[in-house]
Amino acid sequence: MSFTSDQKRLDQNFKELYFEYYAVAQRTAMYVLMQIDTSEDVAQSVFLKLWDKRDQLDQLNNPKAYIIQMARSGALDVVKKGGHLSKNQLQLGFYSEISDEPENVDRRQAIEKAMADLSPKCRLVFSLSQFEGQSNPEIAENLDVSIRAVETQISNVLKSFFNTFQIDSKITKVKT
């Protein structure tokens, strides 16, 4: 009797974990892969692995960080195997929380384009910082890296942005 009630409790705990963090896992994979379908697949496989270990889930002291790290490595595996789409098939789209005036649309599209030039690891750090609103110490904990490593990745992003926008402004100059 205690066995079945234990099973029920584990199943319930797992379901709660799933609903709390599925979207986090999916977005994490999406920032790395820039694709909808593969990021959903990665997120599901993260939870399949957790399902196998559902009797140990209460031992996790930071489930969110654990899930983000699993999603990250799962997504990077997809990149490594070349299973992600080429640049012109990317699906990483954004909307602005403030307004979508024509001026903002251009800037938003410029960011979307700039995102594709980043390395997957770099893009994830930038995304957690900007789109998930996480502080550097939070990112460091969630990815299990040092704060210094987070700062380095952000500085790489800025360098890349600088190059991208410099090229863009040159093109604009040629046009005018």
Partner: peptide
């Protein structure tokens, strides 16, 4: 750019 991107959110939202 940084401040602007801070207000961006993913268009795609998964359905748990």
């Amino acid at each position: 750019q940084w401040e602007f991107s801070g207000n961006l959110r993913l268009s795609y939202q998964t359905n748990p």
